[in-house]
Amino acid sequence: MPSPSPADATPRKGGDLRTRALSAVVLGPLVLAAVWIGGWTFHIMIALVAVLAVAEWIGLVPQDRRVPALVVAAAGVLAAIVAQIALGPVLAVVLALAAAVALSIAGGGREQRLLGFGATYVALGGIGLVWLRDLPDDGLALLLFAMLAVWATDIGAYAAGRSIGGPKLAPRISPKKTWAGLIGGMVSAALVGWAVALAFGAEMPALALLAGAVVAVVSQVGDLFESAVKRRFDAKDSGRLIPGHGGILDRIDGLLVAAPVVAVFHATVGTALAWW
């Protein structure tokens, strides 16, 4: 079979971009609607996303017993999220850590520690998202701050990386990422975080500007971590659930790290400074 010519490759690239855009147009409003409504609608969405994400992790990391690993991972992540909803973050975090131990035992294999870590990685992200949204007064604002800052990071990093280029950020892990992209992502996230703070009447919008830039760095760490795992096991995407985008983990890797960080910041320094 002859190899495709450059002319043949161009339509496929355009088709991929159209597919990505269509998926974003369909899924974006649904996610934002659940975030806006909150309550059980949001809880169910997070639980579903967490189970799908940890299932992708099971498929990504080699193990000896796939079905027991999947059952234990899903149960552990759900238990942690339910505990957060009903009893608060302390027990939820304990269950998230316990899920890592249980998953590493259930799955077995040479990658036990990394396999088990996936349950905690996903569960802590879910716990952070639920904790933020369930805050009685500013939950919606703070969750939108975290989510939109992460989205702005991706957009700003892509735009700056493509237009400026320059030195690579982590060439062995993700060859396309550049330092210019990271800075562009930080600027974008800072501006979006500041805009969200202004829109919701935060007490210290300037601190939101700084926090947005930090969220950008944290989310890029999450992105690089998942990229390193995929590269280790020679996988292009974590899954194929979202047309044009790959898997759930490919879309939320940065948010899974950023949400707990924003939650801890708000519960400690942010509360002390009354920033929101």
Rank of each mutant, 00 (worst) to 15 (best):
S3H: 04
P4Q: 14
S5Q: 02
S5R: 01
S5A: 05
A7E: 15
D8N: 03
A9I: 13
T10A: 09
P11Y: 01
R12S: 12
G15N: 12
D16W: 09
R18P: 08
R20V: 12
R20Q: 13
A21D: 08
L22K: 03
S23L: 00
S23W: 07
A24G: 14
V25F: 13
V25N: 05
P29H: 06
L30I: 14
A33M: 12
A33T: 13
V35M: 07
T41Y: 10
T41L: 13
T41F: 07
I46T: 06
A47V: 04
L48V: 06
L48T: 02
V51G: 07
A53R: 10
A55M: 13
E56Q: 08
W57K: 00
I58P: 00
I58W: 02
I58G: 10
Q63T: 13
R66V: 15
V72E: 11
A73L: 03
A74V: 03
A75E: 12
G76Y: 03
V77W: 03
V77K: 03
L78Y: 06
V82C: 04
A86E: 12
L87T: 13
G88I: 02
V90W: 15
V93M: 05
V94C: 05
A100M: 15
V101P: 02
S104K: 06
S104Q: 11
I105P: 01
A106C: 11
G108K: 04
Q112R: 14
L114W: 02
L114Y: 05
G116Q: 01
F117G: 08
G118A: 07
L124W: 11
G125Y: 09
G126R: 08
I127S: 08
V130E: 07
R133E: 08
D134W: 12
D134C: 04
L140D: 11
A146D: 07
A146N: 11
V150T: 13
V150H: 05
W151H: 10
Y158V: 04
A160I: 07
G161A: 12
I164C: 09
I164G: 06
K168P: 04
I173L: 06
P175S: 04
T178W: 02
W179Q: 07
M186F: 00
V192P: 15
V196S: 08
L198G: 09
L198S: 08
A199L: 02
G201A: 02
M204L: 15
L207A: 09
A208Y: 15
V215S: 04
V217W: 10
S219L: 02
S219V: 12
Q220A: 00
G222R: 07
E226R: 01
S227L: 04
A228R: 15
V229P: 09
K230C: 00
F233Q: 01
F233Y: 14
A235H: 14
K236T: 11
S238W: 14
S238K: 14
R240S: 14
L241D: 10
L241N: 06
G244V: 11
G244P: 03
G244F: 07
H245D: 00
I248K: 10
L249H: 05
D250I: 03
I252L: 13
I252M: 06
I252W: 11
G254W: 14
L255I: 11
L256Y: 01
V261R: 00
V262S: 03
A263S: 12
V264P: 01
F265M: 12
T268M: 09
V269G: 02
T271A: 15
A272M: 13
A272R: 15
W276L: 15
